[in-house]
Design a protein around this nucleic acid. Structure first.
Lengths: 185, 185
DNA sequence: ATTGACACTTACCTACTAGTAAGTTAGTAT
DNA sequence: ATACTAACTTACTAGTAGGTAAGTGTCAAT
Protein backbone atom coordinates (compact mmCIF):
# COMPACT_ATOMS: atom_id res chain seq x y z
CA UNK A 1 0.00 0.00 0.00
CA UNK A 2 1.32 3.36 -1.02
CA UNK A 3 -1.87 4.54 0.72
CA UNK A 4 0.19 4.23 3.86
CA UNK A 5 2.51 6.95 2.67
CA UNK A 6 -0.47 9.22 2.01
CA UNK A 7 -1.99 8.23 5.34
CA UNK A 8 1.16 9.31 7.15
CA UNK A 9 1.25 12.63 5.30
CA UNK A 10 -2.40 13.37 6.08
CA UNK A 11 -2.00 12.47 9.74
CA UNK A 12 1.12 14.61 9.97
CA UNK A 13 -0.71 17.53 8.37
CA UNK A 14 -3.39 17.19 11.02
CA UNK A 15 -0.79 17.01 13.79
CA UNK A 16 1.03 20.09 12.50
CA UNK A 17 -2.19 22.10 12.60
CA UNK A 18 -2.85 21.00 16.16
CA UNK A 19 0.63 20.94 17.69
CA UNK A 20 3.21 22.26 15.28
CA UNK A 21 6.14 20.52 13.66
CA UNK A 22 8.43 20.17 16.67
CA UNK A 23 5.69 18.93 18.98
CA UNK A 24 4.50 15.86 17.13
CA UNK A 25 6.60 12.70 17.16
CA UNK A 26 7.04 9.57 15.10
CA UNK A 27 5.92 7.61 18.15
CA UNK A 28 2.71 9.58 18.22
CA UNK A 29 2.00 9.03 14.54
CA UNK A 30 2.84 5.36 14.84
CA UNK A 31 0.41 4.79 17.69
CA UNK A 32 -2.40 6.53 15.84
CA UNK A 33 -1.75 4.36 12.78
CA UNK A 34 -1.26 1.14 14.75
CA UNK A 35 2.24 0.53 13.42
CA UNK A 36 5.72 0.97 14.83
CA UNK A 37 7.90 4.04 14.71
CA UNK A 38 10.39 2.21 12.52
CA UNK A 39 7.71 1.66 9.93
CA UNK A 40 7.27 5.40 9.55
CA UNK A 41 11.04 5.79 9.31
CA UNK A 42 10.87 3.27 6.47
CA UNK A 43 8.57 5.58 4.50
CA UNK A 44 10.19 8.84 5.58
CA UNK A 45 13.74 8.30 6.80
CA UNK A 46 14.13 11.64 8.57
CA UNK A 47 11.50 13.85 10.14
CA UNK A 48 12.58 16.54 7.72
CA UNK A 49 11.71 14.28 4.78
CA UNK A 50 8.21 13.89 6.14
CA UNK A 51 8.06 17.63 6.64
CA UNK A 52 8.98 18.28 3.02
CA UNK A 53 6.34 15.81 1.87
CA UNK A 54 3.74 17.63 3.95
CA UNK A 55 4.81 20.96 2.45
CA UNK A 56 4.29 19.49 -0.99
CA UNK A 57 0.89 18.21 0.10
CA UNK A 58 -0.05 21.74 1.23
CA UNK A 59 1.22 23.15 -2.03
CA UNK A 60 -1.01 20.78 -3.98
CA UNK A 61 -3.96 21.83 -1.85
CA UNK A 62 -3.28 25.48 -2.63
CA UNK A 63 -3.05 24.71 -6.33
CA UNK A 64 -6.23 22.65 -6.34
CA UNK A 65 -8.20 25.34 -4.54
CA UNK A 66 -6.75 27.97 -6.87
CA UNK A 67 -7.90 26.00 -9.92
CA UNK A 68 -11.29 25.46 -8.31
CA UNK A 69 -11.66 29.21 -7.92
CA UNK A 70 -10.40 29.97 -11.40
CA UNK A 71 -12.99 27.61 -12.87
CA UNK A 72 -15.76 28.68 -10.52
CA UNK A 73 -18.76 30.59 -11.82
CA UNK A 74 -18.66 32.99 -8.89
CA UNK A 75 -18.18 36.68 -9.71
CA UNK A 76 -14.45 37.36 -9.73
CA UNK A 77 -14.76 39.87 -6.91
CA UNK A 78 -15.96 37.17 -4.55
CA UNK A 79 -13.27 34.68 -5.39
CA UNK A 80 -10.56 35.86 -2.98
CA UNK A 81 -12.90 35.42 -0.02
CA UNK A 82 -14.32 32.20 -1.45
CA UNK A 83 -10.73 30.96 -1.63
CA UNK A 84 -10.24 31.68 2.05
CA UNK A 85 -13.47 29.96 3.04
CA UNK A 86 -12.61 26.93 0.92
CA UNK A 87 -9.16 26.61 2.51
CA UNK A 88 -10.60 26.88 6.00
CA UNK A 89 -12.94 23.98 5.34
CA UNK A 90 -9.97 21.63 5.37
CA UNK A 91 -8.66 22.76 8.74
CA UNK A 92 -9.06 20.62 11.82
CA UNK A 93 -11.37 21.81 14.58
CA UNK A 94 -9.25 24.28 16.56
CA UNK A 95 -6.39 23.78 14.17
CA UNK A 96 -4.50 26.75 12.80
CA UNK A 97 -3.32 27.10 9.21
CA UNK A 98 -0.48 24.59 8.76
CA UNK A 99 1.61 27.22 6.99
CA UNK A 100 1.31 29.46 10.05
CA UNK A 101 2.17 26.55 12.30
CA UNK A 102 5.33 25.86 10.30
CA UNK A 103 6.22 29.56 10.30
CA UNK A 104 5.95 29.61 14.08
CA UNK A 105 8.43 26.71 14.24
CA UNK A 106 10.61 28.22 11.52
CA UNK A 107 13.85 28.53 13.47
CA UNK A 108 13.66 24.87 14.53
CA UNK A 109 13.07 23.47 11.04
CA UNK A 110 15.81 21.65 9.10
CA UNK A 111 17.16 23.94 6.41
CA UNK A 112 15.53 22.21 3.42
CA UNK A 113 12.18 22.69 5.13
CA UNK A 114 12.92 26.36 5.72
CA UNK A 115 13.54 26.80 2.03
CA UNK A 116 10.44 24.84 1.07
CA UNK A 117 8.38 26.95 3.46
CA UNK A 118 9.71 30.15 1.92
CA UNK A 119 8.61 28.88 -1.46
CA UNK A 120 5.22 27.83 -0.12
CA UNK A 121 4.61 31.16 1.61
CA UNK A 122 5.52 33.08 -1.53
CA UNK A 123 3.30 30.85 -3.63
CA UNK A 124 0.35 31.60 -1.39
CA UNK A 125 0.91 35.31 -1.95
CA UNK A 126 1.12 34.79 -5.70
CA UNK A 127 -2.14 32.85 -5.71
CA UNK A 128 -3.94 35.71 -3.99
CA UNK A 129 -2.44 38.28 -6.33
CA UNK A 130 -3.68 36.22 -9.26
CA UNK A 131 -7.23 36.05 -7.89
CA UNK A 132 -7.21 39.77 -7.11
CA UNK A 133 -6.05 40.52 -10.64
CA UNK A 134 -9.20 38.89 -11.97
CA UNK A 135 -11.35 40.81 -9.52
CA UNK A 136 -9.74 44.05 -10.58
CA UNK A 137 -10.25 43.35 -14.28
CA UNK A 138 -13.90 42.80 -13.45
CA UNK A 139 -13.87 46.33 -12.06
CA UNK A 140 -14.61 45.12 -8.56
CA UNK A 141 -11.74 46.89 -6.83
CA UNK A 142 -10.61 50.46 -6.72
CA UNK A 143 -8.13 50.92 -9.53
CA UNK A 144 -5.72 52.55 -7.09
CA UNK A 145 -4.98 49.36 -5.28
CA UNK A 146 -1.60 47.70 -5.20
CA UNK A 147 -2.71 44.09 -5.57
CA UNK A 148 0.27 42.54 -3.86
CA UNK A 149 -0.23 44.80 -0.85
CA UNK A 150 -3.85 43.79 -0.75
CA UNK A 151 -2.96 40.11 -0.98
CA UNK A 152 -0.50 40.54 1.85
CA UNK A 153 -3.17 42.13 4.02
CA UNK A 154 -5.74 39.43 3.26
CA UNK A 155 -3.28 36.69 4.10
CA UNK A 156 -1.91 38.32 7.25
CA UNK A 157 -5.28 39.00 8.75
CA UNK A 158 -6.64 35.55 7.94
CA UNK A 159 -3.66 33.78 9.47
CA UNK A 160 -3.57 35.99 12.52
CA UNK A 161 -7.28 35.62 13.12
CA UNK A 162 -7.12 31.82 12.94
CA UNK A 163 -4.63 31.83 15.79
CA UNK A 164 -6.71 34.14 17.97
CA UNK A 165 -9.84 32.19 17.17
CA UNK A 166 -8.36 29.11 18.78
CA UNK A 167 -7.83 31.00 22.03
CA UNK A 168 -10.66 33.53 22.27
CA UNK A 169 -13.33 31.77 20.23
CA UNK A 170 -14.97 31.53 16.81
CA UNK A 171 -16.45 35.06 16.89
CA UNK A 172 -13.01 36.62 16.53
CA UNK A 173 -12.53 35.23 13.05
CA UNK A 174 -15.99 36.26 11.90
CA UNK A 175 -15.49 39.80 13.16
CA UNK A 176 -12.22 40.08 11.33
CA UNK A 177 -13.74 38.85 8.07
CA UNK A 178 -16.69 41.24 8.25
CA UNK A 179 -14.44 44.20 9.01
CA UNK A 180 -12.18 43.31 6.13
CA UNK A 181 -15.13 43.09 3.72
CA UNK A 182 -16.45 46.37 5.07
CA UNK A 183 -13.18 48.17 4.42
CA UNK A 184 -12.92 46.78 0.91
CA UNK A 185 -16.29 48.08 -0.16
CA UNK B 1 19.79 38.57 43.47
CA UNK B 2 16.18 38.66 42.54
CA UNK B 3 17.61 40.06 39.31
CA UNK B 4 18.17 36.43 38.45
CA UNK B 5 14.45 35.79 38.44
CA UNK B 6 13.92 38.70 36.07
CA UNK B 7 16.90 37.58 33.99
CA UNK B 8 15.30 34.18 33.54
CA UNK B 9 11.97 35.70 32.55
CA UNK B 10 13.58 38.01 30.00
CA UNK B 11 15.64 35.23 28.49
CA UNK B 12 12.58 33.00 28.31
CA UNK B 13 10.60 35.75 26.60
CA UNK B 14 13.35 35.99 24.01
CA UNK B 15 13.38 32.22 23.55
CA UNK B 16 9.61 32.07 23.14
CA UNK B 17 9.75 34.65 20.37
CA UNK B 18 12.44 32.69 18.59
CA UNK B 19 11.44 29.09 19.18
CA UNK B 20 8.10 28.87 20.96
CA UNK B 21 7.25 27.52 24.37
CA UNK B 22 7.68 23.80 23.74
CA UNK B 23 10.97 24.19 21.91
CA UNK B 24 13.07 25.92 24.54
CA UNK B 25 14.41 23.97 27.49
CA UNK B 26 15.64 24.61 31.01
CA UNK B 27 18.99 23.21 29.92
CA UNK B 28 19.14 25.79 27.16
CA UNK B 29 18.31 28.67 29.48
CA UNK B 30 20.79 27.39 32.07
CA UNK B 31 23.64 27.29 29.58
CA UNK B 32 22.93 30.81 28.39
CA UNK B 33 22.91 32.05 31.98
CA UNK B 34 25.95 30.03 33.05
CA UNK B 35 24.08 28.19 35.81
CA UNK B 36 22.62 24.71 36.17
CA UNK B 37 19.17 23.51 35.21
CA UNK B 38 18.33 22.89 38.84
CA UNK B 39 18.98 26.52 39.63
CA UNK B 40 16.22 27.54 37.24
CA UNK B 41 13.94 24.93 38.80
CA UNK B 42 14.69 26.62 42.13
CA UNK B 43 13.25 29.91 40.84
CA UNK B 44 10.46 28.37 38.75
CA UNK B 45 9.66 24.87 39.90
CA UNK B 46 7.72 23.81 36.81
CA UNK B 47 8.05 25.02 33.25
CA UNK B 48 4.43 26.11 33.47
CA UNK B 49 5.28 28.41 36.38
CA UNK B 50 7.90 30.10 34.26
CA UNK B 51 5.38 30.32 31.44
CA UNK B 52 2.87 32.08 33.66
CA UNK B 53 5.54 34.52 34.84
CA UNK B 54 6.38 35.33 31.23
CA UNK B 55 2.69 35.89 30.45
CA UNK B 56 2.56 38.37 33.32
CA UNK B 57 5.67 40.06 32.00
CA UNK B 58 3.99 40.42 28.58
CA UNK B 59 0.87 41.77 30.24
CA UNK B 60 2.92 44.43 32.02
CA UNK B 61 4.52 45.37 28.73
CA UNK B 62 1.11 45.81 27.12
CA UNK B 63 -0.03 47.97 30.02
CA UNK B 64 3.08 50.12 29.98
CA UNK B 65 2.84 50.73 26.25
CA UNK B 66 -0.87 51.49 26.61
CA UNK B 67 -0.15 54.09 29.29
CA UNK B 68 2.64 55.51 27.15
CA UNK B 69 0.18 56.00 24.30
CA UNK B 70 -2.52 57.41 26.52
CA UNK B 71 -0.11 60.03 27.84
CA UNK B 72 1.49 60.69 24.47
CA UNK B 73 0.98 64.02 22.73
CA UNK B 74 0.42 62.31 19.38
CA UNK B 75 -2.93 62.92 17.70
CA UNK B 76 -5.32 60.23 18.90
CA UNK B 77 -5.81 58.91 15.38
CA UNK B 78 -2.14 57.95 15.14
CA UNK B 79 -2.00 56.18 18.47
CA UNK B 80 -3.18 52.71 17.40
CA UNK B 81 -0.40 52.47 14.82
CA UNK B 82 2.10 54.08 17.17
CA UNK B 83 1.17 51.39 19.68
CA UNK B 84 1.98 48.69 17.14
CA UNK B 85 5.32 50.27 16.24
CA UNK B 86 6.22 50.65 19.89
CA UNK B 87 5.44 46.99 20.63
CA UNK B 88 7.48 45.83 17.66
CA UNK B 89 10.54 47.67 18.93
CA UNK B 90 10.81 45.14 21.75
CA UNK B 91 10.78 42.10 19.50
CA UNK B 92 13.94 40.14 18.82
CA UNK B 93 15.40 40.21 15.34
CA UNK B 94 13.37 37.61 13.40
CA UNK B 95 11.26 36.97 16.48
CA UNK B 96 7.51 36.81 16.20
CA UNK B 97 5.09 38.29 18.71
CA UNK B 98 5.36 36.16 21.87
CA UNK B 99 1.56 36.06 22.17
CA UNK B 100 1.37 34.55 18.68
CA UNK B 101 4.10 32.10 19.56
CA UNK B 102 2.17 30.96 22.63
CA UNK B 103 -1.04 30.73 20.61
CA UNK B 104 0.70 28.46 18.11
CA UNK B 105 1.71 26.16 20.98
CA UNK B 106 -1.69 26.49 22.65
CA UNK B 107 -2.69 22.82 22.64
CA UNK B 108 0.60 21.84 24.30
CA UNK B 109 0.43 24.39 27.11
CA UNK B 110 -0.44 23.39 30.69
CA UNK B 111 -3.99 24.42 31.48
CA UNK B 112 -3.17 27.38 33.74
CA UNK B 113 -1.12 28.84 30.90
CA UNK B 114 -3.98 28.32 28.47
CA UNK B 115 -6.22 30.34 30.75
CA UNK B 116 -3.62 33.05 31.24
CA UNK B 117 -3.15 33.26 27.49
CA UNK B 118 -6.89 33.65 26.94
CA UNK B 119 -6.84 36.55 29.38
CA UNK B 120 -3.79 38.08 27.76
CA UNK B 121 -5.23 37.79 24.25
CA UNK B 122 -8.48 39.40 25.33
CA UNK B 123 -6.63 42.17 27.12
CA UNK B 124 -4.73 43.00 23.94
CA UNK B 125 -8.04 43.39 22.13
CA UNK B 126 -9.39 45.62 24.88
CA UNK B 127 -6.32 47.84 24.72
CA UNK B 128 -6.81 48.41 21.01
CA UNK B 129 -10.50 49.11 21.44
CA UNK B 130 -9.63 51.72 24.04
CA UNK B 131 -7.13 53.46 21.76
CA UNK B 132 -9.57 53.37 18.86
CA UNK B 133 -12.26 54.90 21.05
CA UNK B 134 -10.05 57.92 21.57
CA UNK B 135 -9.34 58.17 17.86
CA UNK B 136 -13.03 58.05 17.11
CA UNK B 137 -13.86 60.74 19.63
CA UNK B 138 -11.28 62.87 17.87
CA UNK B 139 -13.35 62.36 14.74
CA UNK B 140 -10.54 60.49 13.03
CA UNK B 141 -12.53 57.42 12.07
CA UNK B 142 -15.74 56.91 10.18
CA UNK B 143 -18.55 56.95 12.72
CA UNK B 144 -19.93 53.75 11.19
CA UNK B 145 -17.06 51.64 12.47
CA UNK B 146 -17.49 48.85 14.98
CA UNK B 147 -14.40 49.50 17.06
CA UNK B 148 -13.97 45.96 18.31
CA UNK B 149 -14.11 44.64 14.76
CA UNK B 150 -11.50 47.16 13.76
CA UNK B 151 -9.30 46.21 16.71
CA UNK B 152 -9.61 42.57 15.75
CA UNK B 153 -8.51 43.34 12.19
CA UNK B 154 -5.55 45.43 13.29
CA UNK B 155 -4.34 42.73 15.65
CA UNK B 156 -4.87 39.83 13.25
CA UNK B 157 -3.06 41.46 10.38
CA UNK B 158 -0.15 42.60 12.55
CA UNK B 159 0.36 39.17 14.07
CA UNK B 160 -0.01 37.35 10.78
CA UNK B 161 2.39 39.71 9.02
CA UNK B 162 5.07 39.26 11.67
CA UNK B 163 5.08 35.52 11.00
CA UNK B 164 5.33 35.94 7.24
CA UNK B 165 8.01 38.59 7.63
CA UNK B 166 10.27 36.07 9.29
CA UNK B 167 10.02 33.75 6.28
CA UNK B 168 9.64 36.02 3.24
CA UNK B 169 11.39 39.15 4.49
CA UNK B 170 10.89 42.56 6.05
CA UNK B 171 9.03 44.05 3.06
CA UNK B 172 5.99 41.89 3.75
CA UNK B 173 5.26 43.63 7.02
CA UNK B 174 5.72 47.09 5.56
CA UNK B 175 3.37 46.32 2.69
CA UNK B 176 0.73 45.08 5.07
CA UNK B 177 0.98 48.22 7.20
CA UNK B 178 0.75 50.58 4.25
CA UNK B 179 -2.23 48.76 2.83
CA UNK B 180 -3.97 48.85 6.19
CA UNK B 181 -3.40 52.59 6.53
CA UNK B 182 -4.60 53.09 2.98
CA UNK B 183 -7.87 51.28 3.64
CA UNK B 184 -8.49 53.21 6.83
CA UNK B 185 -8.24 56.60 5.16
C1' DA C 1 28.84 31.39 67.61
C1' DT C 2 24.47 29.60 65.79
C1' DT C 3 20.52 29.61 63.14
C1' DG C 4 18.24 30.10 59.15
C1' DA C 5 17.17 31.63 54.72
C1' DC C 6 18.68 32.19 49.95
C1' DA C 7 20.74 30.79 45.81
C1' DC C 8 22.61 27.70 44.23
C1' DT C 9 25.30 22.57 42.58
C1' DT C 10 25.79 17.54 42.11
C1' DA C 11 23.79 13.63 41.02
C1' DC C 12 20.18 11.37 39.80
C1' DC C 13 15.38 9.47 37.72
C1' DT C 14 11.99 8.56 34.32
C1' DA C 15 10.08 9.48 30.01
C1' DC C 16 10.53 10.51 25.46
C1' DT C 17 13.06 12.00 21.21
C1' DA C 18 15.01 10.89 16.37
C1' DG C 19 17.27 7.52 14.25
C1' DT C 20 19.40 2.74 12.98
C1' DA C 21 20.51 -2.22 12.21
C1' DA C 22 19.00 -6.56 11.64
C1' DG C 23 15.52 -9.76 11.15
C1' DT C 24 10.61 -11.19 9.50
C1' DT C 25 6.69 -11.88 6.57
C1' DA C 26 3.91 -11.79 2.41
C1' DG C 27 3.53 -11.36 -2.27
C1' DT C 28 5.56 -11.28 -7.06
C1' DA C 29 8.57 -12.57 -10.92
C1' DT C 30 11.39 -15.88 -12.93
C1' DA D 1 11.33 -23.84 -5.99
C1' DT D 2 14.15 -19.51 -5.81
C1' DA D 3 15.10 -14.97 -5.52
C1' DC D 4 13.73 -10.53 -4.86
C1' DT D 5 11.23 -6.71 -3.08
C1' DA D 6 8.04 -3.98 -0.13
C1' DA D 7 6.47 -3.20 4.17
C1' DC D 8 7.03 -3.95 7.97
C1' DT D 9 8.77 -5.44 13.55
C1' DT D 10 12.06 -6.04 17.32
C1' DA D 11 15.50 -4.28 19.71
C1' DC D 12 18.54 -1.05 20.25
C1' DT D 13 21.43 3.64 20.67
C1' DA D 14 22.49 8.20 22.19
C1' DG D 15 20.72 12.42 23.37
C1' DT D 16 17.50 15.43 25.57
C1' DA D 17 13.39 16.57 28.20
C1' DG D 18 11.26 17.97 32.77
C1' DG D 19 11.76 17.25 37.38
C1' DT D 20 13.65 16.01 42.22
C1' DA D 21 16.45 15.10 46.51
C1' DA D 22 20.14 16.12 49.05
C1' DG D 23 23.97 18.71 49.88
C1' DT D 24 27.04 23.25 49.72
C1' DG D 25 28.45 27.96 50.36
C1' DT D 26 27.33 32.71 51.66
C1' DC D 27 25.35 36.06 54.24
C1' DA D 28 22.45 38.44 57.74
C1' DA D 29 20.10 38.46 62.10
C1' DT D 30 20.04 37.01 66.70
Amino acid sequence: MTNRKMQIIELTLKNIQEKGFTSFSYEHLAKELGVTKASIHYHFEKKGDLGIAVCERIQQGLERTFTLMKESTLPAEEKPFAFIMQRIKFLEQDGICPISALQADYQELPQPMQEKLQQLSQMEIDVFVELLKDAKQQGALQATNDLEALAVLLISSTKGALQYKRVVGEAFFQKMLEQLKELLK
